[in-house]
Amino acid sequence: MLITLNQAKAIRRKQADLMLTNQIASKQIGINPITYRKVINGGEVKKSIYQKVMEWLAEDY
């Protein structure tokens, strides 16, 4: 699955809005901090990671 640049930007924006560190954001999503770093830059991730990230992103909307 592909995290687009727009999705990565939205993830970074939510992280900033909630004033979360990368570590805390990754914990909330339920992924490894190293994987989270990959997510916020956009790119290819496993389907399970993609699902977790998108669920976290849509959580407050």
Rank of each mutant, 00 (worst) to 15 (best):
Q23K: 11
Y36P: 00
E44A: 01
I40Q: 15
N32S: 15
A10T: 09
A25R: 05
A16P: 00
R12E: 05
I40E: 15
N41E: 15
N6H: 07
L20Q: 14
N22V: 03
T21F: 02
R13A: 06
S48W: 02
G42P: 10
L20E: 15
T21H: 03
T4F: 06
N41F: 05
L20G: 09
Q28L: 12
I29Y: 03
T35C: 03
T4I: 09
V53S: 08
Y50N: 06
Y61W: 08
Q7L: 02
I24P: 00
V39P: 00
M19R: 10
K27A: 11
S26W: 11
K38Q: 13
I34L: 01
A58V: 05
A10Q: 15
K9P: 00
Q15M: 12
A8P: 00
K46A: 10
L5T: 10
M19Y: 06
S48I: 05
E59Y: 10
I11F: 01
E59V: 06
L2F: 11
A25C: 10
I49H: 10
Q23R: 12
R37A: 12
K38D: 10
M1Q: 04
I11S: 01
R13V: 04
L2K: 15
K27E: 13
A16M: 10
M54E: 12
L57D: 03
M54F: 07
V45Y: 06
T35D: 05
T4M: 05
I24H: 11
T4D: 12
G43L: 06
K38Y: 08
V45R: 04
L18T: 11
I24G: 00
V53E: 09
M54G: 10
S48D: 04
N22H: 10
S26N: 08
L5S: 06
V45F: 05
I34M: 01
Y36F: 12
